[in-house]
Every structure is written in structure tokens, then in C-alpha cells.
Design a binder for these strands. Structure first.
Length: 107
DNA sequence: TATCTGACGATAG
DNA sequence: CCTATCGCCAGAT
């Protein structure tokens, strides 16, 4: 195409909702007991640096579209603010070790 | 189009 | 190890 000024790079994808769709796919692919950070999800989805936006997606789940949100934690192993008890419970149920209310993240 | 928001991340103190 | 601050992003207003 000749035109498309395109906003010079932020994402390459300009379809509203594409981001959410990609994030949902990555999270849905996580297996039992597998834990990754918001930043990793963003990178896997093709939006490096959009960790914060990933949190927004998991915070507003689409009706009928259930995702294993508990398998996503912060880079330091922090659990979801305000839902730490349930978050920890779900992870433990899958065999994920919790130390001091946080997941011992390697690296 | 401009501004604000937030289930983040890295760094400084 | 903890809190405070700044930087980044997509979505909502």
C-alpha cells in the first residue's frame, strides 16, 4: 500500500482488541503449574513493554471467556493486589510454591 | 486529539 | 528487604 502513515511503531497492530485477543491466547496456553510474569505475557503476545496493559486485560475478563489468570504474577512474584489469598490458594492447588505471599521467581 | 488510568517493571533510597 | 518514583503501553473518557 502507498499511504498508511501509521503511528511510527508502537505496535504494528492497530486493530482495537487485537492486543486483548493475543494476550488471552497466551494466557490460555499456560499449563497447570506454569507461572509467568505480565511482562513475559506481553512479549509472548508480541507487545514487549506492555506488561501493565496485560494486567488491564486480566482485570476485565470477557464474559464466557475464562482464563487461568492466577498463573500470571509480577516479575518479582507478587500476587494480585486485593486477591492474594485466593491467588495463592489457586497456585498452591497446582503445586506452585508460595513463600511469604509471593512466588519464588528464578532469575 | 488530549488526558487520565492501572492485576507492571526497573531503579534509587 | 521495603517503599517511593519514574517510565511504558493499550484502553477508556
Amino acid at each position: 500500500m502507498a499511504l498508511s502513515k501509521q503511528t511510527a511503531g508502537p505496535t504494528v497492530e492497530r486493530d482495537a482488541g487485537a492486543f486483548r485477543r493475543k494476550v488471552a491466547a497466551v494466557v490460555a496456553s499456560l499449563r497447570t503449574g506454569e507461572v509467568i510474569s505480565y511482562g513475559e505475557v506481553a512479549a509472548e503476545a508480541g507487545y514487549p513493554g506492555a506488561a501493565r496493559a496485560v494486567g488491564a486485560v486480566l482485570a476485565h475478563p470477557s464474559p464466557g471467556r475464562e482464563l487461568p489468570w492466577w498463573r500470571v504474577v509480577t516479575a518479582t512474584g507478587r500476587l494480585v493486589p486485593g486477591h492474594e489469598a485466593e491467588h495463592a490458594r489457586r497456585l498452591r492447588a497446582e503445586g506452585v510454591p508460595i513463600r511469604r505471599g509471593r512466588v519464588p521467581m528464578k532469575r
